[in-house]
């Protein structure tokens, strides 16, 4: 039973492992190519994730809950939209880097609506602004 739950929780990584294993037998060159392609992104992740970790810590420790509610929450109005948009636009990097920050904002109840966190997903943000209203 324990194995089942571990498998369930890490479904995606097991799925990817299976695909790689199959590839390794059927066309090894493709498996190697995929591995090589991935290394760039691995390095990128190692560069970006520590920063995200530090930032979530700083937000959690320094920014009071009331401030997030005021600036990004349900009643933040147009100011909240603009802030989120700005925050989303200046952040660079892979999309998964925005997930922890957005989640933290949501957890702090700053974002009563998902749409506000939506903006945090950089670059595409202003389109989402209208999209999710």
């Amino acid at each position: 039973m324990k194995i089942v739950s571990v498998l369930k929780r890490n479904r995606l990584i097991f799925l990817v492992l299976v695909v790689y294993s199959i590839l390794l037998f059927t066309s090894p060159d493709k498996a190697i190519q995929s591995w090589k392609n991935s290394t760039y992104y691995l390095i990128e992740m190692l560069q970006v994730l520590p920063v995200i970790f530090l930032l979530t810590v700083v937000i959690e420790a320094l920014v009071p809950k009331e401030m997030i509610i005021k600036d990004f929450g349900e009643n933040s109005g147009i100011k909240g939209n603009l802030f989120s948009l700005l925050l989303g636009s200046i952040s660079a990097g892979p999309i998964y880097a925005a997930f922890p920050i957005s989640k933290l904002m949501l957890k702090k109840k700053g974002c009563q609506h998902y749409k506000y966190c939506n903006y945090l997903k950089f670059m595409g943000c202003y389109k989402n602004t209208y999209a999710c209203k």
Binding site: R9, N10, L12, V19, Y20, L23, S34, S38, Y41, Y96
Partner: peptide, 12 residues
């Protein structure tokens, strides 16, 4: 775990 999985998925 998911992020690492995604990275290898991108490689594929």
């Amino acid at each position: 775990g998911e992020i690492v999985a995604i990275i290898f998925l991108i490689g594929l």
